[in-house]
Every structure is written in structure tokens, then in C-alpha cells.
């Protein structure tokens, strides 16, 4: 029997529930991280060849924003309970594919199998944790406001709209789900620029999302060069908010410039962690606070006459 020919992989983008190639036709080689943990200063992986990933262009980013905008009203209109169920279903599918995720995280981050498994488990738990918030968030951050008059004054959170996310460069799955789940749980849709050098767990997450119940366009995943797409998303007037977490450790990306570009249409901006310009990636293993959810909410306040 002849030796089996290896199946070489060239992955695609995830936009509007479909898997298109980059409009530019480009792709790039993805390599494993050296077996150590954190990679070199630029975050570049120098190990064995893993697969080819699509290199998205600004036009792919534009198309992804269109898809996210289209999906947003329907996703926000779903009941909070329903969104929670849909997200929980994602965690189920992640669990079913955890072996694949462990392999990919181990290769992408240079972790041992045991550490990678722990990271994947934490990622799935994180997703479930956020799924649980779907129908509780409004109770915690909304409520009845005391006013000096015969009125009910009620504040309720609403999703901001379309959120661009620069996903963390180092933590390829745990970090990724830790920035996506809090954004979509409240009814936002998102366009995610994945880790530049560690995109493969994100590609698999795209396949997981496509085969769970998340409507197409709610999450759009763009693999490629962060510095190429980030300015276009930051200045895009149809993007309501941008999460700059992944600007930390991204090569040729200045989060200050991105924040300035975002100001042109008064986007909500979440800065990367760290002091001043020294952006760092947070420790994703810690249980998060609510800020990643509340940063991408608007507050609707209603006055209603109470009578006597």
C-alpha cells in the first residue's frame, strides 16, 4: 500500500455565515510557536509549517462589516434567553471538538498537551460563563431609577451595534473567546481580526459557530495582518465600537492612532490593557469582570407616568 498523501490545508475566512476566500486571493503560511510559551517580541511563530490561512484585505473587512450590520437587528431582537441558549450550544460544539482545539492551541502557543487542554477547558468554561449572563445582564446593569416625580424611570441596556474586535495576539483561543463572547451576548454583532500568527484556533471556532445555531453574520472572522485591517475598521463609520485588545503585541499597530481614527464617528473604544502606551495582553485565566460586556452597551431610559 502506498503512503498516504497528506491533506494540506488552506483555510478561508468566515463572513456572513459563509467561508469565502479573501477577495484579494492572498493567503499566508502559519507556523507553530517554538515550545516555550510566549513567542518572540513581534509575536511571530517560527516553528513547523501548520497550514495556509487566508490573508484578508480591507475589502474583506468592509464586506464583514456589511454582514455584521445585516445580522445585527435580528440578533438583538432575539430574546436574551434565546441568545443564552444559542451561546450555550456553541460551548457544546466546542466541547465536542475539544481534541482538535487542544492540538491547535498546543501548536499555536507552544504549549504541552496538558497545558493546552487546560487552556481549551478554560475557554469553553469562559464561553459558558458569558452565555449565562445573557438574561442576567439587564438585571444587574439596568433597573428602576429613583426620580423626584410621579414617574417610573427605567434604564435598560441595549447593544451598541457592530463591534470591531482586534483579538489577542498571544492567547489564540482562550483570549479569543474572552473577547468575542462578551460582545455578542448582549446582542451586538462583531468583526474579528484574529491573532495574526496564531489564527488556526479561530478558524476552527468559525467552523464551530457555523455548525451551531449562531446566525450568519453575528461573528465574522478575518485572518491576516492586523496592521493592514485595523485602521480601516477604526475609521469605518458603520462600526459602532472597537475593542483594541489585540493591538498589544501586534506589529506596526499603534493603538493610539486607532483610537484617534475611531473618534471620527464617536466609536466606543476599549483600550488594550497596560499603562499609557505600553499595551499588554491581560492574563486570560482570571475570571473576568463585567466590563467587556458593559463597554459595548447603550443605556435606554424610559419615563412612564405613574399616576396616584
Amino acid at each position: 500500500m502506498s503512503e498516504r498523501v497528506e491533506v494540506r490545508k488552506t483555510f478561508k475566512l468566515y463572513i456572513g455565515g459563509a467561508f469565502p476566500r479573501s477577495e484579494s486571493g492572498r493567503s499566508y503560511a502559519v507556523h507553530a510557536a517554538p515550545r516555550s510559551g510566549r513567542s518572540t517580541s513581534s509575536g511571530s511563530n517560527t516553528g513547523a509549517f501548520l497550514a495556509n490561512a487566508a490573508m484578508a484585505s480591507r475589502k474583506d473587512a468592509r464586506d464583514a462589516v456589511v454582514a455584521a450590520r445585516k445580522a445585527q437587528p435580528g440578533w438583538a431582537e432575539a430574546t436574551a434567553y434565546n441568545r443564552g441558549q444559542v451561546l450555550y450550544r456553541v460551548a457544546e460544539v466546542m466541547q465536542g471538538r475539544s481534541a482538535q482545539l487542544v492540538d491547535e492551541v498546543a501548536a499555536a502557543e507552544g504549549l504541552s498537551a496538558a497545558k493546552a487542554a487546560l487552556s481549551v477547558d478554560t475557554a469553553i468554561d469562559r464561553w459558558v460563563w458569558y452565555a449565562g449572563w445573557a438574561d442576567k445582564l439587564a438585571q444587574v446593569v439596568g433597573g428602576l431609577n429613583p426620580v423626584a416625580g410621579p414617574f417610573f424611570n427605567i434604564s435598560a441596556p441595549e447593544p451598541t451595534g457592530v463591534v470591531a474586535i482586534l483579538a489577542p495576539q498571544q492567547s489564540s483561543l482562550l483570549g479569543l473567546v474572552s473577547v468575542i463572547a462578551p460582545v455578542i451576548v448582549s446582542g451586538n454583532t462583531c468583526v474579528v481580526v484574529t491573532s495574526q500568527d496564531r489564527p488556526l484556533p479561530a478558524v476552527t471556532l468559525g467552523e464551530i459557530l457555523a455548525t451551531s445555531d449562531v446566525p450568519g453574520g453575528v461573528v465574522n472572522l478575518l485572518t491576516g495582518v492586523t496592521a493592514e485591517m485595523a485602521p480601516w475598521l477604526a475609521s469605518h463609520r458603520d462600526v459602532n465600537a472597537i475593542d483594541l485588545t489585540g493591538a498589544a503585541d501586534a506589529s506596526n499597530v499603534s493603538w493610539g492612532e486607532l483610537e484617534a481614527a475611531a473618534a471620527t464617528n464617536l466609536k466606543r473604544v476599549r483600550r488594550p490593557a497596560g499603562e499609557a502606551e505600553a499595551a499588554v495582553e491581560p492574563d486570560w485565566r482570571l475570571t473576568p469582570d463585567l466590563s467587556r460586556m458593559t463597554d459595548f452597551l447603550e443605556t435606554k431610559t424610559v419615563w412612564h407616568p405613574k399616576g396616584r
Binding site: R62, V65, R69, W232, S235, H236, R237, D238, V239, A261, T264, N265
Partner: peptide, 9 residues
């Protein structure tokens, strides 16, 4: 403007 616009505009 050099920036992608949106339907709000």
C-alpha cells in the same frame, strides 16, 4: 473622506 461610510450617513 478615505473612510468607509455607513447607512447612518
Amino acid at each position: 473622506t478615505g473612510a468607509y461610510s455607513g447607512s447612518d450617513y
